[in-house]
Design a binder for these strands. Structure first.
Lengths: 223, 223
DNA sequence: CGGTGGGTTGAGGTATTTCAAGGCTCGTGG
DNA sequence: CCACGAGCCTTGAAATACCTCAACCCACCG
């Protein structure tokens, strides 16, 4: 139960929870807070820890030399990130908003996997989950229109943000754009179109709170 | 040595070779041939086997309902494909040219992984390799220009096709386009530009044999 | 030989980007 | 308390990278 502080009933995999049969002596555990915009780790840095979001949200991205950015994933509450099979991070990770994370020392974890089959299986499952997400995202980035991308994004967030009714997105338009391979203006226009068609609405003036009014119609847009 | 029929000296991982401590009784093995264009397995089909290319080439892709296609990967000689963590294929796989593959029963493999740590580690490594490729490809699809994409493709193929001097690409322009998230015309134009700049040349008239004349300049285009 | 399957190239169209302006919110400091 | 600037978002207009459509070439093959 040591690792399972935040366990909530959910159909999502609770990976760190599943590692609870590992003794505290073997896996050093601690908690850490990052201010909005702070870097958790950088691309190509040695991977010392793996992370789990306790509160807040994180973006993982790659940069091209001229500053173009591709966000590979958003990590929301309970998500695990920073898991690397090699010893080096392949993304930069930044807190999107003020965020607290739980840390697990990577070396000890890899060591445990050698002897504990269930830990090894968990690592494989996590990696496979990430792979599936990346595969689906390749299809989105390679072949979907801007409207389809935004619709897919909203459905993904609707599914992952467990909130009832309204989605409180932690990320700004630029983040969404860099996740979807678009510009922030194109994202904004797509959202306006969806709003004008009565498929979604905004709450408050900040435009970060979105309410899905017609999920079926949104799903039609996600081919 | 049973599995290691085609072992060649190479720095590439030889995964099926690494499984050679598995007894023949546990992993049923066979060989199979596919004609050009033939489907090896379909998306959403139950995954009964994993595959290794002995000769030829394979493409793995997803389709949207209206026929848009995204190729997630090309599988060349010695590559393993069709590995799934869940029990279902997430891509359709087709032979690009006449191709022969080696098959391994998946269920038995998963079973072996439970007891054999080295097999479990191999599975994790393979999945992690696929994940890294997908992550890099997301950056390409989301943020690179057509010329950068084609340059990256040529460098990838140059690296993977061990041939000396000339690359004999097995896939047509449409396949390249669907891999890079472009149209075949755009791929063709990019290749023409690279040729006109003396960066590459064609051999024969079929335009499938490409010789890289200026690898450094090509690498400059791949940011 | 005629047809078919690649491949290239041109001309025109369009989805998305780029550039620019303006509005709203919020925090900070006078 | 209000003014101000910074950040975020939207919207319009113009530019452009890529797509679409079409013509043509070439190799291959029955």
């Amino acid at each position: 139960m040591f690792l399972n502080l935040n366990a909530t009933p959910s159909n999502k995999p609770r990976f760190l929870g599943e590692l609870s049969n590992v003794s505290p002596a073997e896996i050093a555990l601690s908690e850490f807070k990052y201010r909005a915009g702070a870097e958790v780790f950088g691309e190509a840095e040695p991977a010392e820890y793996i992370y789990q979001v306790i509160d807040g949200a994180v973006r993982s991205y790659k940069l091209l030399s001229d500053g173009r950015r591709q966000i590979g994933a958003f990590h929301l509450v309970d998500d695990i990130f920073g898991l690397e099979n090699g010893g080096v991070h392949r993304f930069t990770a930044e807190a999107i908003v003020d965020t607290s994370v739980r840390l697990v020392k990577r070396v000890s974890l890899a060591h445990v996997a050698e002897s504990d089959v269930s830990v090894a299986r968990d690592l494989l499952n996590m990696t496979a989950t990430n792979l599936k997400h990346a595969e689906d995202h390749m299809l989105l980035l390679g072949r979907k229109t801007s409207l389809e991308r935004v619709a897919a994004f909203l459905l993904e967030m609707d599914h992952r943000l467990t909130a009832t009714g309204v989605m409180a997105l932690p990320m700004c338009r630029r983040d969404i754009a860099d996740y979807l391979g678009l510009t922030l203006e194109t994202v904004s226009r797509a959202l306006s179109i969806l709003q004008s068609q009565g498929i979604l609405g905004f709450l408050g003036q900040t435009q970060r709170q979105i309410v899905l009014l017609d999920r079926p119609k949104l799903a039609e847009l996600d081919l």
